[in-house]
């Protein structure tokens, strides 16, 4: 791929969202270093090389940090926000469901799926 081709067409954010619309959770990998990258970048962070390619995420992750956002029951009730360490290395913000928000514990193994929050596609995790 030429540099011109690499920087042509929809950018990484649009490509990520297009994959999500197809139900696929894709992350990037640097061809040179093999390091995985999330969130979608234009060039590889730190090295600066224009060599990012898309690979499907394993969907395996571990809860790194977690909070219960308190919300009135009539507005939908409490919800979880967590930081998940992907098995491939990168970290992402996400929601863990399938367990009460306050039962999401640091170190918990979780599995990803492509779901939806208020009509927008999102990577959602539940206990593995």
């Amino acid at each position: 791929m030429t540099t011109t081709e690499y920087f042509s067409g929809p950018g990484p954010e649009a490509q990520f969202k297009a994959f999500m619309a197809e139900g696929k959770f894709m992350i990037q990998r640097s061809a040179a270093s093999g390091h995985h990258v999330f969130y979608p970048r234009t060039i590889t962070p730190c090295s600066g090389t224009a060599d990012l390619e898309w690979v499907e995420a394993s969907g395996d992750g571990t809860v790194y940090a977690s909070t219960v956002t308190r919300r009135r029951p009539e507005q939908g009730g409490d919800y979880n926000i967590a930081l998940i360490d992907l098995a491939e290395g990168p970290r992402m913000m996400a929601r863990v469901d399938g367990v009460a928000p306050n039962q999401v514990t640091i170190g918990m193994r979780v599995k990803a799926r492509v779901g939806e929050i208020d009509g927008e596609t999102a990577v959602i995790w539940s206990p593995a």
Binding site: E13, F38, Y39, P40, Y64, A65, S66, T67, T69, Y79, I81, A82, L83, M92, M93, A94, R95, I106, G107, I117, D118, E120, T121, A122
Partner: peptide
């Protein structure tokens, strides 16, 4: 924040709560 906003964080509060959760753990 791109790739965070969909999870409806209440920034900056959510971020500091996450940091506190990790620190305590």
């Amino acid at each position: 924040m791109p790739f965070e906003a969909v999870y409806q964080p209440r920034q900056p509060l959510t971020a500091y709560a996450l940091a506190a959760s990790r620190y305590m753990h």
